[in-house]
Structure formats: C-alpha cells, structure tokens
Design a protein around this nucleic acid. Structure first.
Length: 881
DNA sequence: GGCTCTCGGGG
DNA sequence: GTGTACGAGAGCC
C-alpha cells in the first residue's frame, strides 16, 4: 500500500510504544499505519575513564535500558570521532527524567527529540512524503480509519499529492453580560461549516443550538449539547484532513473544546481516540488534532512576508484577496446578535447567512489561494510534519540537519537552555547613503549571499577549528575564526546549501519542460520552498535557541558579508566611472554617468560580470535601474524603477521604509505622499510637487477635503480609565459613552475619528465623523497640516531643498495663517504664532519639541507647552488652540 | 536614531 | 507529549 504522510503520533500499548502514521492514498482513502518495533534512545558522552562507572549507575537506576558503546562525531568543532553511550529505553515519556539523571554523568545528545521525529529520522520518513507499506490490516477502534500493522515501511518518490479534504469552521457565541464571550460561561449558538470538496452535495452547513427550519443547509438542534454532538458526528462522517478557521487556534478551537468538556462530550475531533487539544504559549499556538492538520488563516497570513495587510481581520483579507464582502452585523455586534438569535425566521436566516459566509471565506482563503502548496513542499524537503511547518522556521532546519547529521554519524546537541544570555551577533553592513535625489541609479545584489558564503568558505559547526591546527589546512576568516578546508572535511551546512542550490537548478529546469498544470503548480511551490529554506538558513545559525547556535559562526558569516560588500564597493568604484551611493547587506546602489536604460544596463552587466569573476562562489546580479532615486536615510528610499520583464522594461514607483499606509494616518496623507513622490520621481519637478501640497493644504483649509480622507482609526482595547496619558480616540470614547448613555460598552470597538476646531486641547477635539456631519462641525486644518501631512512630507522636501516654511508659504497667501484664515475673521494674536513656530517648548523644564504633543502638555513634567519662533527669539505665546 | 512596550485576531 | 516557539509598529527618550 502506498500513502502520503499527513501526521504521526504514538501511544503506549502493552508497555511498549506504538507508532501511528496517518496518511492518504491517491484515491483519497485514509489509513493509519502501526509500527511497534521501535524504541526511544539517546546518546551520552562521558569521559573515557568514567564510562564503566556511568554504565553501572544508569543500569542501577534504570534496569530496563539497553546500553551500547558506539563511535560518533561530536557536532561542534572539527575533531576525530569519540566513544559515546547509546541508551535505549522503553518509554519515550521517561526520557526527560533519564536525560536529567545522565546530565550528572556526562553530556547527553539528542535526548530531547520527539519520539515520532526520532522514528521518522531513522526511517527516512518526511512529512507529506510517500511511503510504501507492507503489512496486515488490523481491527481496532483506537483509530477511525483503516489500520495496518506494518512489517516494513519504505520511503518512495512521488511528486503528486493525494486528494485532501478541507473543512472550515466558524462559531458564534452569545454572552449574557456585556463583554467578549468566554467559553467558561458563554454558550455557542451556532457552528458554521464549509466543505471542500462538498459534503453530501453541500458546500455549507450551519448547525444551530435552537430548533429551526430555515433551509436544507441548516440543522436545528434542541440545545447546545445536541449541536456539539451533531458537529462531532459530521466531522467524523466527512473525515477532513485539514481544519480551517480564522483565528481558529486562539478562539474557535479552544472554545469548542472547552464547551465539549463542560458538556462531558468527547473531544474527539481527530482520527484517533486521543483528545484534541489547543495549547497557547507566549503567542504561538500548538493545536493537536490527531491525523488532521489545523490551519489558522489568521496565523498563516500574518506570517506571510510576501503579502502585507493593514489589518488581519477576515473582512480585510477576504476583500483584498478574494474581492469578497463579509456580511456586517452593524454597529453593536452583541445587541444585533442577541436580537437575531431571539428573533423569528427572518432574523435567524440573517444570522445563518452571516456565519455561513465567514466559514466560507476562510475556506476560500486556503483552497482558492493554494496557500498550503508551499507548506506541502517545505514538509517534503525538511521532513517536518505539515502541522509543524506552519509555525516557526527553526524546526525545519533542525530536523533537516538532524537527518543529515545521522547519515554521517554525527550527533546533535540538546536545545540550549532557555534565557541563557548569549553574545550579540554583529549585523550587516549598511553604508551611510548619499542623501538626496539622484538620477540613473543601478541596483545590483548578491544572490543568496549568506548561503553562498557558508558554502564557499566551508562554514559549519563540524568544520569549526577550536584549537591549534595547521594553518595550511584551514580557512582563516575576516572574523578571525578558522574552518578546515573542504578537502579535509566538507561541512554539513555547506552540503545542505549545495544540495538546495542544485535542487533549485533542477526544479527550474523541470519547470520549463513541465506541461501538466498540477505538476507545474507543485514545481513552483517546491521552488518557493527551496528559496524559503535557503533564505532562512543564516537566521537559524544566528538564533540563540538553535541546537547548533555558535555565536562565532554567525559572526563569521556576517563578517564575510560586510567584507564582501565593502570590497565590492571599492572594486566597483576603482574600475568603473561610478559612485556607490548606498549599500545594505547584500546590495549596492551605484550612480552612473548614463542617460538611457540600455547604456545603464550594459554598464550594469559589465559590473556584474567583473565582480562575480573576482569573488569566487558569489554572483553579483543586476537587478534594476532607477531613473530617479530619492534616499532619506538608511533603509528609507523611493525610486522610479525599471526592470526587465520578458525582455521589456517594466516600470513602477517603489517605496521602501517610507510608510504611506499606517493605521494612525488618514488616507489624505498616504494619497498626498504618493502624489508627491510620483511628481518628484517621474517629473523631477519639486516645485510642482510643492504646489500640489499647497493646493492640498488649501483644500483642507477651505473644507473641501472629504471627511473619509481625514478619518483616523484606532481601537479601544481596554477599559477607558486604564489608559494613561491623553489620547484622542480615548477621549472620544468617553464622549460617546456620555452622549449615548444606553450604550453598554465601547471596549473592543474600533473608533473612527476626525479632529475638529475648538477651544480645547487637541485630544479633546477628536470627534466621530458621523456626528461631525450631522452637526455640521468643522475639522481643524491645523491639526491635519502639522500633525499629519507635514511630518512625512517635510523629510522628502527637505532633501530636495525645500523647507517647511517654503512649503507653507509662497502660494497666493503669504503664510499658513492667511491660508488658515481664508475667508474667516482675524484670529486672536495668540493664534497668530501658530503660523510660523519653529519649536514647542516647556517653560518649566526647558524641554523642547518640534511639534506640539497631542495633550498640549509637556510629556516630562506635564505643564503646558508654549510655541516659540516667528523669527524673533523669546517671543513665546501660550498655546491656545 | 535606537530602545522598550503593546497588541493582534475572535464574539 | 523525549516539546515550552512572535513580531510589527507605536511610543519614548
């Protein structure tokens, strides 16, 4: 029988561990493979003369263990193999205790590797890979699928994936009190399921904790308990491989499990008799549902470095990626839900529709977007089970390396102790940029710089020279560390890098010839998975809690990186008529004396070839040309880029580190920023950009900017009196509570606000845009100019040689004051000062700031702030908004 | 510019 | 289950 591995666990049976591998065959049938001929073991390194004594002590304490002496290479430092004890136990669960006991006798190795992973490593089994099993079918009720007692298990190579079944779930709960639902008190009223492929010709099912007759896709139940039983029944019957939900790990799954427990129902969501669990620690979650994989769309999308969202709620992600709209329950969620739940058929139908769409969207975010494809391949390449690939990167490298180590008779260290302080790794080189607006800038970067360096210089814990060794056999690094030459011993880390690079070339070749679309899709995912693994390998070596963390090694890699980029700069400037204006980690930006794309490209290719030929094992690749390039500081730049795309030039405006989309900025700011950069970069007309800003300010003063563009959003996350300091949205919340005294609570809500004109402190002038519209209130242009528009724009204009005062003045009006006044009557003298202040000072403690604080008070001593400026020193006028 | 603190999704 | 794992952005000097 051939099947693809989905999950693996073990149980103790008759005093012996029984390994269970869950998987699927090509037809989609589920199996569980049992294997009972594997026992837990680990290694112990003790001083040669103490070996006999150690064996005796272990035997006395643990008579059941088997101890052998074997030859192994220790993982850190180049050295000959040593004798170590291999201690084989019976119960995996006893190993931690044995490990502690052995720590007094010597150094244990591999004593903290999960039993299932020990087994998988030794049998060369990998998550999502295929195995060939010979054995006999077993009758059992410990698992819910066909069980096979295996005689032999062999890995086999199959590219395709078995057909998987996905179910997405979303629950609705109702609390009687006015707070967020908690599973200890508040019941679940509805469970919504969405299936792929369909379940009994249905895409959706909603199970209600109330008798109802809505339609074929709704099952009414007498109460919550009946609903939960029905839910378990459907999961068993449909038998999904993948469980999906938005914030499933942190909300729906633990909630359902807790309610099942309270109703004394089995928590049997998995494929075995093991209870499903969902544990949270720090911030990451560890759901365990035997035989199935739990996928939380919130966690998956939040971790994805390629797509970024302003917010990660289901509505936002679904809208952006699927173009789908979520049903909104309106202003007061709890009240609406309560009303719908208590209502007649129409109300209930609305509730059903709401929860049904949520489950469906989460499902589509996985299936339609194919987000798991890459993780399938990461599992196959690293060996880690699919469920464990969805989390951090460390495990992937650790397990891959464990297998490479075992193959070569090396043993792995234990995980380092927690909270151990470790030396800081010195990071990459970032050149101080030549700040300004430049023409014709070429970007080149080293492909996979750190992995290439690991490979070129044989950098690995196993080749690391820790004591005197003949220099002619070593590579001495710029950090001062030494590694033996590959001719003496090739490192494991370099081998892994080479393997990934070779694999990548192979996959790229296969991608070109592949015709089948399913095959193409898998190859593409494989390529992405290889890229991910390669890019995160350096990070692993520099992670203090990695088994193979050696600070000298991480420091060696970055030192080589710094040396590479510095010598590249020198080399390029000495051999070509160019100036390097910026460099960061593995990329350099060079300013060239050219005036068209083709010449720039020719030059770039010459530079690329030259540097690549001089630096062995490295490739400096031509990336793109910036016709115009504006750099503010390290890591903050924008440019008009041109890149080859299938032979043609593709152009776009790029921004790095210049935040145009920030939650606490209104859209007017991002729009203006975007317009300004477009004008500056494409037309190189700074004056025109300044005019654009002035006209925006003009519109603002004249009240021509729509409230939507001025709305700022901030969440109220805790009770109002627990906020320290004065914040506009908190003050607004207080106002709203006062106005709508029937409103139960505001905690957990997101507040939209605009800043209006008035005589109070800034923060007291936050107001609900709807209220502003109703009452015909006016927004405060000064706030939007000084606190929103100016800060980001000022920096851009500054480096283009236009100061803030020039920005504000020079239009029809003489200065900001006149613009602010517009058609209005004259302001009081106190307000005049606002037109041209240089800074804000606190007269009490003499602290000074560039801009007024939101509270209007000094953050240090809380006394009122004063404006200073207007050209004349000493002319300080009290802030009267 | 660098460091510490907070908060996220969900009902 | 031989486990014990966050990271971006805001706020503050």
């Amino acid at each position: 029988m051939e099947m693809q591995i989905l999950d693996c666990d073990y149980v103790m049976l008759n005093g012996k561990p029984l390994i269970r591998i869950y998987g699927k065959d090509m037809k989609g049938e589920t199996f569980c493979v049992f294997y009972n001929k594997f026992l837990p073991y680990f290694y112990l390194h003790v001083h040669d003369e103490k070996i006999e004594e150690a064996i005796k002590q272990i035997k006395d304490r643990y008579p059941e263990v088997k101890i052998e002496t074997v030859e192994k290479f220790l993982p850190i430092g180049y050295q000959p193999p040593v004798k170590v004890l291999k201690i084989t136990g019976i119960e995996p669960g006893k190993t931690p205790e044995m490990k502690e006991f052995c720590q007094r006798l010597g150094t244990p190795y591999e004593a903290d590797i999960l039993f299932k992973y020990r087994f998988m490593a030794d049998f060369d089994l990998r998550g999502m890979s295929w195995i060939d099993v010979k054995g006999t079918f077993q009758k059992t009720n410990t698992v819910k699928c066909k069980a096979i007692e295996a005689e032999t298990i062999k890995p086999i190579e199959i590219l395709q994936n078995a057909p998987l079944k996905y179910v997405s779930l979303d629950i609705e709960c109702l609390s009687d009190e006015d707070r967020f639902a908690v599973p200890e008190k508040d019941r679940i009223i509805a469970i919504s399921l969405a299936f792929y492929p369909e379940y009994k010709n249905k895409k959706n099912l909603v199970i209600l904790a109330r008798l109802a007759n809505i339609n074929n896709n709704v099952i009414g139940c007498a109460d919550e308990k009946e609903m939960l039983s029905k839910f378990l029944e459907i999961i068993d019957d449909y038998d999904p491989d993948i469980l999906i939900g938005h914030n499933l790990n942190n909300f729906d799954l633990p909630y359902v499990l807790k309610r099942l427990e309270l109703h004394q129902l089995p928590r049997s969501l998995g494929r075995s008799d093991k209870n499903a669990i969902s544990r949270k620690l720090e911030y990451t979650h560890m759901p365990t549902v035997s035989g199935r994989i739990v996928v939380d769309t919130f966690e998956i999308y939040k971790r994805d470095p390629w797509v970024k969202f302003k917010r990660y709620d289901l509505g936002t992600i679904a809208k952006e990626l699927l173009g789908a709209e979520k049903v909104e329950l309106g202003e007061n969620y709890i009240d609406t839900l309560r009303r719908l739940w208590a209502g007649k058929k129409d109300d209930l139908t609305k509730l059903v529709e709401y929860t049904q769409i949520d489950a469906e969207l989460a499902l589509r975010l996985v299936v339609e977007r194919g987000v798991l494809d890459k993780f399938f391949e990461i599992a196959k390449l690293s060996g880690v089970l699919l469920q464990d690939c969805l989390g951090g990167q460390t495990q992937r490298h650790e397990f891959r390396l464990l297998r490479e180590f075992s193959k070569r008779s090396y043993i792995m260290p234990l995980k380092p102790e927690r909270f151990k302080t470790t030396p800081q790794i010195k990071g990459a080189f970032v050149l101080d940029p030549v700040v300004g607006l430049h023409d014709w800038v070429i970007l080149l970067d080293f492909t996979s710089l750190y992995p290439s360096l690991i490979s070129s210089f044989n950098i690995c814990p196993t080749t690391f020279v820790m004591n005197g060794w003949k220099d002619e056999n070593c590579i001495t690094t710029p950090y001062g560390t030494k590694f033996v030459k590959p001719s003496i011993r090739k490192g494991i880390l370099p081998s892994v890098v080479d393997d990934i690079l070779a694999n990548r070339i192979l996959i790229r070749k296969q991608m070109k010839t592949a015709t089948d679309s399913a095959q193409k899709r898998i190859l593409k995912s494989k390529y992405l998975a290889l890229k991910d693994l390669l890019n995160s390998l350096y990070g692993y070596t520099g992670y203090p809690r990695a088994r193979l963390y050696v600070s000298d090694i991480a420091n060696t890699i970055t030192a080589y990186g710094r040396e590479t980029i510095a010598s590249t700069k020198k080399m390029v400037e000495e051999n070509f008529p160019v100036k390097v204006i910026y460099a960061d980690t593995d990329s350099i930006f060079i300013k060239a004396d050219v005036n068209n794309l083709e010449d720039a490209e020719k030059l770039a290719n010459r530079v690329s070839e030259f540097v690549s030929s001089k630096l062995l094992g490295l490739e400096l690749k031509f990336e793109k040309i910036y016709k115009t390039f504006l750099i503010e500081t390290k890591k903050r730049y924008a440019g008009w880029s041109f890149e080859r795309d299938n032979g043609n030039w593709a152009e776009k405006i790029e921004m790095k580190g210049i935040e145009t989309v920030r939650r606490d900025w209104c859209t007017l700011v991002s729009e203006t920023m975007f317009d300004v950069l477009n004008i500056v970069l494409k037309e190189k007309d700074v004056k025109k950009a300044a005019r654009h800003v002035r006209s925006t300010i003009d519109d603002l003063v004249k009240g021509k900017v729509s409230l939507e563009k001025l709305t700022i959003v901030k969440g109220i996350t805790k009770s109002l009196d627990s906020y320290e300091g004065v914040q506009p949205h908190v003050e607004l919340a207080k106002k709203i509570i006062k106005r709508e005294f029937l409103k139960p609570s505001i905690v957990g809500e997101r507040l939209d606000y605009v800043i209006i004109k008035g005589n109070q402190l800034l923060s007291k002038r936050a107001e609900d845009p709807k209220y502003v519209k109703e009452k015909g209130l006016e927004i405060d242009p000064r706030y939007y100019i000084y606190n929103q528009l100016l800060p980001p724009l000022e920096r851009i204009f500054d480096i283009c040689g236009i100061s803030a005062s020039e920005l504000l003045e020079g239009s029809k009006q003489k200065n900001l004051l006149d613009m602010l006044n517009g058609q209005k009557p004259q302001l009081s003298p106190e307000e005049t000062i606002l037109s041209a202040f240089d800074s804000v000072v606190c007269k009490n403690c003499e602290w000074s700031f560039r801009r007024p604080t939101l509270s209007g008070n000094c953050p240090k001593c809380n006394s009122p702030l004063y404006f200073s400026g207007d050209g004349s020193i000493g002319k300080i006028v009290e802030l009267k908004p």
